[in-house]
């Protein structure tokens, strides 16, 4: 078996190059005035940190935290029971129902965002059903849109843990005097923690960083840090500002990643 270990070496080099190198590069861009494309001389400067005093940036940071937390909490509160229901379904079509959760993810996300956008304007196909919404730019629009996009990422990791849960542990808890509620709180919930942590992170991070969704459903009024990064890298070319925000984001990711790795060392809940 040990001869097979050689297969890992090129992959390690490839992954290190494409993960560590750019991370250092972004950190470097954040504290210098280096131009990525002209590659001229550069000087170290902390000038860029001043972006944190700008109200647009502050609002974008606050919005990212607000919307991602709100979405994640609601997605967990509704997604956990749904995952539980699916995991305990006694039907030959169980795998089919679970597959139904994944299918929407395979539909183009931009189009799904547009679909919500169309419904949230006062004049929409909903008028045919006597409904007229004026939600564009509201919290509702963004949270509903996010839930619709990220529910599967919350549900699937929780489902995969619950469906593998040893039924004998539940029977053992009942045998030792636990009623349904006790069994859930003392056995099922703690044992599904890895799935919950994965689900929370896989929902929180995309929600925090999306830029297409707030752009469309926010009607141009709501900015998230994703929008700031997109603007900086793709439109204004202010790489230093983009990198500074990215570094903040990467610190958050690092903390969350540590969380995932403590409960699920091999990433078994990530698929």
């Amino acid at each position: 078996m040990h001869r097979l270990r050689a297969y890992v070496i090129p992959y390690r080099v490839w992954m290190t190059t494409l993960i560590i190198l750019p991370s250092l590069m972004i950190l470097f861009l954040a504290i210098t005035d280096f131009d990525l494309y002209l590659k001229g001389p550069f000087v170290f400067t902390l000038e860029g940190l001043r972006v944190f005093t700008e109200s647009t940036i502050q609002i974008a940071l606050m919005n990212s935290i607000k919307y991602s937390l709100l979405t994640t909490i609601i997605a967990l509160l509704i997604g956990y029971p749904a995952a539980y229901y699916l995991a305990n379904l006694k039907s030959a079509y169980k795998t089919f129902f679970v597959a139904l959760i994944i299918i929407p993810v395979w539909s183009n996300m931009l189009l799904r965002i547009i679909a919500w956008e169309k419904l949230f304007f006062p004049i929409s196909i909903l008028n045919n059903f006597g409904i007229s919404l004026d939600w564009i730019g509201s919290d509702k629009a963004i949270v509903v849109g996010m839930l619709s996009m990220y529910f599967p990422f919350m549900i699937l990791p929780i489902y995969s843990v619950l469906v593998k849960l040893d039924q004998h542990l539940i029977e053992a808890a009942r045998d030792l005097g636990a009623n349904g509620f006790d069994t859930f709180v003392k056995v099922i919930l703690p044992l599904s923690l890895p799935g919950i942590v994965s689900g929370v992170i896989m929902t929180l991070l995309p929600a925090m960083t999306t830029f297409a969704l707030p752009e469309r459903l926010g009607g141009g009024k709501v900015l998230l840090i994703g929008n700031i990064i997109e603007d900086a890298f793709m439109k204004t070319g202010n790489l230093q500002m983009g990198s500074i925000i990215s570094v903040v984001l990467m610190i958050i990711i690092l903390i969350l990643f540590k969380g995932i790795m403590t409960v699920d060392k091999e990433g078994e809940t990530l698929l």
Binding site: D166, H168, L169, D175, L176, G177, V187
Partner: peptide
């Protein structure tokens, strides 16, 4: 009478110890 109300306890085949 559900299992949690029975004055009976079980030692399971694969023990079913709570891993957490």
């Amino acid at each position: 009478i559900p299992p949690n109300k029975r004055k009976v306890n079980t030692v399971f085949q694969h023990y079913a110890l709570f891993p957490h």
